[in-house]
Measured scan of single mutants.
Amino acid sequence: HNLTITQGKLFFHYNPKLCLSEIHKMEEVSGTKGRQERNDIALKTNGDQASCENELLKFSYIRTSFDKILLRWEPYWPPDFRDLLGFMLFYKEAPYQNVTEFDGQDACGSNSWTVVDIDPPLRSNDPKSQNHPGWLMRGLKPWTQYAIFVKTLVTFSDERRTYGAKSDIIYVQTDATNPSVPLDPISVSNSSSQIILKWKPPSDPNGNITHYLVFWERQAEDSELFELDYCLKGLKLPSRTWSPPFESEDSQKHNQSEYEDSAGECCSCPKTDSQILKELEESSFRKTFEDYLHNVVFVPRKTSSGTGAEDPRPSRKRRSLGDVGNVTVAVPTVAAFPNTSSTSVPTSPEEHRPFEKVVNKESLVISGLRHFTGYRIELQACNQDTPEERCSVAAYVSARTMPEAKADDIVGPVTHEIFENNVVHLMWQEPKEPNGLIVLYEVSYRRYGDEELHLCVSRKHFALERGCRLRGLSPGNYSVRIRATSLAGNGSWTEPTYFYVTDYLDVPSNIA
Rank of each mutant, 00 (worst) to 15 (best):
P205L: 07
N206H: 13
N206A: 14
T210R: 02
H211M: 15
H211G: 12
Y212T: 14
V214F: 14
V214I: 15
F215Q: 06
F215E: 03
F215P: 01
F215D: 06
E217F: 05
R218K: 15
Q219W: 06
Q219A: 04
A220L: 12
E221T: 03
E221L: 11
D222S: 08
D222E: 03
S223G: 04
S223K: 08
S223V: 07
L225P: 05
F226Y: 09
F226H: 05
F226I: 13
E227L: 13
E227F: 13
D229R: 14
D229I: 13
D229E: 12
Y230K: 10
Y230S: 03
Y230R: 12
C231L: 01
L232Y: 11
K233S: 10
K233V: 11
G234D: 09
G234Y: 06
L235Y: 10
L235F: 08
K236P: 13
L237C: 12
P238S: 05
S239F: 02
S239P: 14
R240P: 10
T241N: 13
T241P: 13
T241K: 09
S243Q: 06
P244Y: 09
P244E: 13
P245A: 07
E247V: 13
S248C: 13
S248R: 13
S248L: 03
S251Y: 13
S251A: 05
Q252I: 07
K253S: 05
N255E: 07
Q256F: 15
Q256P: 09
S257E: 14
S257G: 08
E258D: 08
Y259N: 11
S262M: 09
C266N: 14
C266D: 07
C267T: 13
C267E: 05
C269D: 02
P270K: 10
P270T: 15
K271Y: 14
K271F: 13
T272L: 09
T272E: 08
S274I: 02
S274H: 12
S274F: 01
Q275I: 13
Q275L: 06
I276S: 13
L277A: 07
L277V: 01
L277H: 10
K278L: 09
K278D: 11
K278T: 14
E279P: 08
E279R: 10
L280H: 13
L280N: 14
E281Q: 12
E281N: 08
S283Y: 10
S283F: 06
S284K: 10
S284I: 00
S284D: 11
R286V: 09
R286P: 09
F289W: 04
F289K: 03
F289G: 09
L293Q: 09
L293A: 12
V296H: 11
V297K: 08
F298I: 10
V299Y: 15
P300A: 08
K302Q: 10
K302E: 14
S304C: 04
S304G: 03
T307F: 08
T307I: 06
T307H: 13
T307N: 09
T307P: 09
G308S: 08
A309H: 13
A309K: 15
A309I: 09
A309R: 12
P312G: 14
R313E: 14
R313M: 02
P314V: 03
S315H: 11
S315W: 14
K317C: 11
K317Q: 06
K317D: 12
R319A: 14
S320Q: 09
S320R: 11
S320D: 08
S320L: 11
G322F: 04
D323P: 05
D323K: 08
V324Q: 08
V324P: 09
G325P: 12
N326V: 15
V327S: 08
V327W: 08
T328S: 15
V329M: 12
V329L: 08
A330L: 15
V331I: 14
T333L: 07
T333P: 07
A335M: 14
A335R: 13
A335P: 12
A335N: 11
A336F: 10
A336V: 09
A336C: 13
A336W: 03
F337M: 12
P338I: 11
P338E: 08
P338L: 09
N339W: 10
N339K: 09
T340N: 08
T340D: 12
T340L: 09
T340R: 06
T340Q: 05
S341M: 15
S341H: 14
T343P: 11
T343N: 14
T343K: 12
S344A: 12
S344M: 10
S344N: 14
V345Q: 10
P346K: 11
T347C: 07
T347E: 14
H352Y: 13
R353K: 10
P354L: 10
F355A: 08
F355N: 15
F355V: 09
E356T: 06
K357N: 11
K357L: 13
V358A: 03
V359G: 12
V359Y: 08
N360Q: 08
N360T: 11
N360L: 07
E362T: 06
S363N: 03
S363H: 05
L364G: 13
V365T: 06
I366K: 06
I366T: 01
L369R: 02
H371C: 07
F372N: 07
F372G: 10
F372D: 03
T373R: 03
T373I: 09
G374M: 11
Y375K: 00
R376P: 01
I377D: 00
E378V: 12
L379C: 05
L379P: 01
Q380K: 07
Q380L: 11
Q384V: 13
D385Y: 08
T386W: 10
P387I: 11
E388N: 12
E389R: 11
R390V: 03
C391L: 02
C391P: 02
S392G: 01
S392W: 04
S392D: 00
Y396V: 06
Y396M: 15
V397M: 05
V397N: 14
A399F: 08
R400G: 05
R400Y: 05
R400S: 11
R400W: 06
T401R: 00
M402D: 06
M402N: 15
P403R: 13
P403T: 10
P403W: 14
P403M: 04
A405F: 11
K406H: 09
K406G: 06
A407V: 07
A407Q: 11
D408P: 01
D408S: 03
D408L: 04
D408T: 03
D409I: 12
G412T: 08
G412M: 11
G412H: 09
V414T: 05
T415W: 04
T415S: 09
T415Q: 11
H416Q: 14
H416K: 09
E417T: 12
E417L: 09
I418Y: 15
I418H: 04
I418T: 13
F419Q: 14
E420L: 10
N421V: 10
N422E: 13
N422R: 06
V423D: 10
V423Q: 08
V423L: 04
V424P: 03
H425M: 12
H425A: 13
L426F: 07
Q429T: 05
E430M: 02
P431W: 00
P431H: 00
K432W: 04
E433P: 03
N435I: 00
L437C: 10
L437G: 04
I438A: 05
I438N: 06
I438Q: 02
V439L: 09
L440S: 06
E442R: 04
E442W: 14
E442I: 11
V443C: 02
V443F: 01
V443I: 08
V443G: 01
S444D: 14
Y445V: 11
R447P: 08
R447H: 15
R447N: 13
Y448H: 11
G449V: 01
E451Q: 15
E452Y: 14
L453F: 09
H454D: 15
H454N: 01
H454S: 02
C456F: 02
C456Q: 01
V457E: 03
V457H: 02
V457R: 06
V457Y: 14
S458R: 09
S458A: 09
H461P: 04
H461D: 13
H461E: 05
A463S: 13
A463W: 12
A463E: 07
E465A: 08
E465Y: 13
G467F: 06
C468K: 08
R471P: 09
L473P: 02
L473A: 02
L473K: 01
P475E: 05
P475M: 10
G476P: 01
G476K: 00
G476H: 00
N477L: 08
Y478E: 00
S479A: 14
S479E: 11
V480Y: 04
R481H: 13
I482P: 01
I482G: 01
R483M: 15
A484Q: 03
A484M: 07
T485K: 10
T485I: 12
T485W: 08
S486R: 02
S486V: 01
L487F: 03
L487G: 02
L487S: 14
A488P: 02
G489A: 12
G489F: 08
G491V: 00
G491W: 00
T494K: 04
Y498P: 02
Y500M: 06
Y500W: 13
Y500R: 06
Y500N: 05
V501P: 01
V501W: 02
T502S: 12
T502H: 12
Y504G: 10
Y504R: 11
Y504F: 03
Y504V: 13
D506P: 07
D506L: 05
V507I: 11
V507T: 12
S509L: 12
S509Y: 07
N510R: 07
N510I: 15
